[in-house]
Amino acid sequence: MTLLDDQICKVPEYVEELRSRGRAVTVSDAPPISVALPVAVGKGAHSGLVLRGDTWLELGNPEAGSCSCTLFTATPGLVRDGRVTVIGPDVSDACGKSLPFGQILLIGGDELQEGDCELLMHMGVIGDSIEGYMVRSSRQSVWSRISRDVALKGFTLKTLGRALRTLHKAGSCKIQAMETIFVTSSREDLERLAEIAREGQMITREIARVTWKARGVDLDCTLDCSSCADKTVCDDIKELLGERVSAS
């Protein structure tokens, strides 16, 4: 059992909840990674830019709604490798639209540990790695554009899920399984997902705090302990606080 397993277990419940509300849910299993994608994937796959006039579809504009989270586990059995679930309209149905966007990445690997959290979170920065797909640099959640050219070549959300899986697996050999869920149905449908994302975020922030602490940086303070002249005073205060807490 690892730290985010509870949140991972909530994801199938969330999908079923939306299905029971009558949302269109499409589930597909991706072919092995060796099967070519319809678009180029990898560093420098394209310019990293999709101009306004070249945009087929916008996803996750904050005015439409956006939520994303990456959850990982050391129990790969919790993750169905290659599965892509799409709830709501897909790319081909949405020419010229701006849709809400939820993106959940479930990642599993026997050897994944809390220390891998930072790397996994940074993998979410796509940059120029997927042809015809631009993720804007301005938000914590995904706000992206799909170009007309790739949409006409058959780019779907399943393609996006496969591309993300390819990039993640190339980025860490510890990743054995990766499953993706996309939600484009409504802003309201993202609210429940936002709760799961918030829980996950609280845990990953705590992991970050511990990771930085091990490097000598206390995130509760903005200063670097190793170069801070007040470290002794700070340590004394913490010690005193600790004594008071244990005494009370």
């Binding site: 990293g48 920065v125 705090r209 903005t222 670097d224």
Partner: peptide, 20 residues
């Protein structure tokens, strides 16, 4: 400046990657 070192570093990495 108001937030954590983690936050500060993540922004640097994102800018470096996104803006090449």
């Amino acid at each position: 400046c108001l937030h954590t070192t983690d936050f500060f570093c993540n922004d640097i990495l994102q800018i470096v990657k996104d803006f090449k």
